[in-house]
Amino acid sequence: MTDPSEIDEKRLLEAYRALPRPEPPAALDAAVLAHARAALATVRPARSRWVAGLASAAVLTLAVGTGWQMRENTLGTAPLSPIDSRPEAGAEAVVGAVAESTPLAADAGSKSADNSAPRPDSRDVQPVAAEQKGESATRQDRSERQRSMQDETAGSAQQSRQPYRAQAPPRAVVPAPLAAAAPEAPPPAPPAQEAAAAPPAASMLRKSTARAVEGGADGTQSTAIDALAKPAPQADSVPEPTENEILANDDDAGSTRSIPQTLSPLEWLDAIRRMRDQGDTRRAADALAQFRAVYPDEPVPDDLKNLLP
């Protein structure tokens, strides 16, 4: 049975639907549709702006990445001769130095003057100079002994070193702060007081570390061994002397300090052979004794056994 109220509602709705059904004017239709199309059209530029923003971010990222790469490359090339700063690399440095001829080694002085970054050879003047100041008293005592040694070793070796010394790097390459820190540093030893050494040995000394030179300052083997046994941080704190200073200290130390203890055994023995071949048997014998102290387990070659006491 149908509810009378439902029948009334149906009749009412039918009567309402029978009413006129007006529609919006055509102009109103056009206005609304145009507005909707315009709204869709404005969305596309918004997407374009989004793409433009993304592109800007990508360009920025690329620029930062490129700059970072360039910075890393710059940092990677900044340290000069890093091998020299490693104490265990002393022998390797000497091997490289042996391969260099004397003129090439002399060119290092002019190169260091052109290089803005301080080179190990030039920056280490101050500590050695200070050491020279502290040892000025003992140096005077040794001067007479050195002169006598020079008389013994004068000859062709002395003449062969002169061109090398003429091209040695000047002190002017020392960085200003370091030079100012050692105003009282004495000038380098005059060439006339320098002990004779074979040119190859001098070339090796140029690249050797200062630790061995300083370790043998008093001319004793025990000090040299102690210097070799210094821990690695010592290499950072003890700067490498310049070529002239090595030779000057070499002169101060006497005949037993003509070869740095950082040489490998074979290189050391080769240097001893060169001394012997040049007639400097005394220094060769002293160097061999020093070698045996540093490398007691290394066998002495047969050709050098005649230098043993």
Binding site: P22, E23, P24, D29, V32, L33, A36, R37
Partner: peptide, 26 residues
């Protein structure tokens, strides 16, 4: 579809509901 950029979808919606809305308001 219209939100996704289909202009024709809005026209269909408009034609479907414009009379009802206009009469309701009127």
């Amino acid at each position: 579809a219209w939100v996704g950029g289909d202009a024709a979808a809005f026209e269909a919606l408009y034609l479907r509901h414009k009379g009802m809305l206009f009469r309701y308001l009127l």
